[in-house]
Design a protein around this nucleic acid. Sequence first.
DNA 1: AGCCAATTGTC
DNA 2: ACAATTGGC
Length: 493
Amino acid sequence: MDSPALLWFRQDLRLADNPALQAVADRPLLPVFVLDDAAAGRWAPGAASRWWLRQSLEALGRDLAARGTPLLLVRGRAEIVIPALAAAIGAPEVLAGRLYQPWARERDRRVAEALEVAGRRLRLLTSSLLRDPARVMSGSGRPYAVYTPFAKAVAAMGEPDFPILPPARLRPVAAPPPGDTLDSLALYPVAGEPDWAADFPALWTPGEAGAQARLARFVAGPVSGYAAQRNDPGTEGTSGLSPHLHWGELSPRQVWHAVRQAQPGELSQPWPFLSEILWREFSYHLLWHRPEMPDRALRERFAGFPWQPDAALLRAWQRGRTGYPIVDAGMRQLWHYGWMHNRVRMIAASLLVKHLLQPWQAGAAWFWDTLVDADLASNSASWQWIAGSGSDAAPYFRVFNPVLQGEKFDPAGRYVRRFVPELAALPGKWLHQPWKAPAEVLRGAGVILGRDYPGPVIAHAAGRARALAAFAALRAGGHGLGDTTGDSMDPAA
DNA sequence: AGCCAATTGTC
DNA sequence: ACAATTGGC
């Protein structure tokens, strides 16, 4: 069989362990990436993701070109572009890794239809998850709604298959059609790298080689102390693999087996980390079975939650000016590096939805634009989890105390001092609650509250009480809330 | 993978 | 006095 194949790269920007690439065998191959923002709509990649994507496409293009099969880049509607390319090279088959976002599922259906009209077909392979979400079902034959039984079920399916090696060589098609340039995809808002990304390269190396290097570094060190170190935002205790996994520069089973090789034997040892991989799987499981997850609360009850949308409060949170140092450190780390430590994501998200009563969708939208690892499944599931509106969510009455969380997880203050430098000279005792510091301590640290650093946007006790009252009103089935802010009431529908 | 106030336990 | 535990939110 020597007919050419079209290999459609989407969120599997790698050569190793790529089932679609393996399925091509040694047929002539045209690799293509299509930037189709119109199909994705609101969920087209955000700014930080586009920065990443541009670099990753550059890397993939280099890797493919080195094997004699340059990557074709095209801007446009996939259901037009893909069938046209398949026709141009006479490919009976288009191969791609399966996507799970609602918009992508719709689009794949349209692409498949357009191909079938011309007697061709779209073959989708599982390449970005350990298990296909449709294949994991509870004993009752229904999808899982709770993480723990889901994780147990996936673990009980046994270790995933070993990764596939990258192909030794690839054959190009005889006459590749012309494509667009990387620049013309306009993944950067202006020519040259955007200035907000100035420090991204210090932390990130997008592309398959960078992903492999990051994985190797993780399994050589942090993975062994993961259970203890993962909650310390001031150290590199986590893997930092999330953006690589999002774009599929690495597959979860490559990660799984690298970790298993470092920690063979009982699954319980590497479990704290592998469990995070399974949280990602669970998020995709939820997205597949509950496609409304990015937009609407999974718990019906929350449809009537009395959120109080407020542009100024949202902006203070976005800019890292809430007056809670651990939260502000996180929001600034996010802006600076396109990434935030997971522990801090929970604290910052909790403050936004509980103390500030801002709808979780507003927080999710900000993360979508600023995170290099923005992922529709993980982002939506996690925001709903923290808001209490998700399947298997944290109960709404769990309200993080940002002072206690800061003291518990950043006891030495390394993290806050790094990202909130205006507080760097404050002694540890006051670092997580500068408004309580005596005047002479503040003076000694060179801090004037309200000028150099804001006071707390809301007192913790008041914010907590208001959040619990809102929740109580919800439980009582009422839609009103006896708040004192009057006209700012605006229950989100 | 919560917080907090009340209660109980220990010196 | 203070720590550990508990139950409601």
